[in-house]
Simulated scan of single mutants.
Amino acid sequence: MFRLPAEVAEIAFHNKALVYDLLFKAASDTMPIAADRSILARASASPPSCIPGARR
Rank of each mutant, 00 (worst) to 15 (best):
M1L: 08
M1K: 11
R3L: 13
R3N: 11
L4R: 10
L4W: 02
P5Y: 04
A6L: 07
E7I: 10
V8S: 07
A9K: 13
A9H: 04
E10Y: 05
E10D: 14
I11R: 10
A12G: 10
H14W: 06
H14T: 10
N15G: 04
N15W: 06
N15S: 12
K16L: 13
K16M: 08
A17W: 02
L18N: 12
V19T: 11
Y20F: 15
D21H: 11
D21I: 01
L23N: 06
L23C: 11
L23T: 04
F24I: 12
A26Q: 03
A26S: 05
A26R: 06
A26N: 03
A26P: 00
A26W: 01
A27Y: 14
A27E: 08
A27M: 09
A27V: 03
S28M: 11
S28T: 02
D29N: 08
D29C: 04
T30Y: 00
T30W: 00
M31H: 13
M31W: 04
P32E: 02
P32G: 02
P32W: 04
I33S: 00
I33H: 00
A34Y: 00
A34L: 01
A35V: 01
A35R: 15
D36C: 03
D36Q: 08
R37L: 10
R37H: 06
R37T: 05
S38L: 07
S38Q: 09
I39Q: 05
I39M: 09
I39D: 03
L40H: 07
A41I: 05
A41L: 06
R42N: 09
R42H: 01
S44L: 14
A45L: 03
A45T: 06
P47R: 10
P48I: 04
P48W: 04
S49H: 09
S49A: 14
S49E: 12
C50R: 13
C50N: 12
I51D: 09
I51R: 14
P52A: 11
G53Q: 03
G53V: 01
G53M: 01
A54N: 15
A54V: 02
A54Q: 09
